[in-house]
Write a protein that binds this DNA or RNA. Sequence first.
DNA 1: AGGAGAGTACGAACTAGTTAGTACATTTGC
DNA 2: GCAAATGTACTAACTAGTTCGTACTCTCCT
Lengths: 226, 226
Amino acid sequence: MSTRLEPTKNRARAAPTRAQDPEGTRQNIIEVAAQEFALNGLSGARIDEIAAKTRSSKRMIYYYFGSKEGLYLSALENAYRQVREGEAQLDVAGLPPLDALKRLVEFTFDHHHQHEEFIRMVMIENIHHGEFLERSGVIRELNVTAIGNIEAIYAKGLADGVFRPGLDPLEIHWQISALCFFNVSNRATFSKIFGKDVGSPAAQASLRQQAVEMVLRFVTRPDQLP
Amino acid sequence: MSTRLEPTKNRARAAPTRAQDPEGTRQNIIEVAAQEFALNGLSGARIDEIAAKTRSSKRMIYYYFGSKEGLYLSALENAYRQVREGEAQLDVAGLPPLDALKRLVEFTFDHHHQHEEFIRMVMIENIHHGEFLERSGVIRELNVTAIGNIEAIYAKGLADGVFRPGLDPLEIHWQISALCFFNVSNRATFSKIFGKDVGSPAAQASLRQQAVEMVLRFVTRPDQLP
DNA sequence: AGGAGAGTACGAACTAGTTAGTACATTTGC
DNA sequence: GCAAATGTACTAACTAGTTCGTACTCTCCT
């Protein structure tokens, strides 16, 4: 009837057929999808394009994720998970508060810098008013613990008398995020408007150090400043 | 041959035909387009949708702007122009450096807050790696003068001995932008992750004041701090 | 003064190509 | 043998852009 399947048997024996690997297929699809969504946005990304770059097929995308939006949500969740896992690597427990906060800012700065794809996913999600993030129970759980670090550092800094009272750890987190996030998210327009590549290693080193300074000066008690 | 044009004459006489208004039509299209692009992104916005919300028609969009991208570019340029014109309202020439910088940060914070549509356009443009901004000669001209204010303030602050030396006005602008931009751009995800509406008046007031403090503490000579 | 032309402004219907999603058949691993 | 996993071919709806035709406005000629 049809000839299109004839080579199958041969292929099956010629090379050890790629075993069925649901989890691998799923993961592969998600990774490709994340790239495409991060690059083109939700509406800009093309399912056919994603499928083509996959080791799998369009059929499988719908088999596993149901719809384009389902795929986007999974990719978003995956991105958050990866990044939070990376952040969990940071350990500042033993450090004095000032050093700990410095490390935290540096780490966040570098981490955001290294995960541009994640930053772009968050930008895109904000364009969509965070509606997919809202639908996802998973993501909120991942993030609530993210301020734990700052809370601990701030508490210790207060106790030691080096930080000033009255600050909200969530707001400190907000400010660190602002400085580190903007550095990646707005690099393109900023560089092009002012004709200076703020992504260059020299510029980044300077901005990084200044981000640290800003946060430390903000949190430190004035009489503790050098 | 065709019947579809029969009603034309009647229509022409029945109601006093709306006068031709090229500039008005153009402007109306751009305003609607900006809204739609800001809401849905370049690929997410629909020409038919834009046309429908216009007082004009799809035909006119292509008549005036040539293509979807042409329309997007015009909307982007318009957004930048509007915002920069608004910023030009700020006059801090007479103020002492510290007060001037404080005003500048407050003004930027408020201005970004009030121009969410513009912020979203910039976000979208960053998703596109600033390629349209690059194509536009207009926009760069508008912006290069934007740091003029900071340069003047910083120079005066140095002369008065209240600011510390060695800072780059462009980097100060970068930091102010980061704090004020992030406040609008990432409100959705931030609020949803931490279950707190950072857009509420109370939260905004606090973040605003802290943005001012951060910048002032960063720029001020330590021995000049209260 | 007024009418012919020309260029500008506008509208409705159409089209070619794209795109998310599906029906159906087949294979693989247990 | 059976359920989960996968491949191929298709479609219905959408979407950027176009075609063809009309109406308005200004100018310039006489």
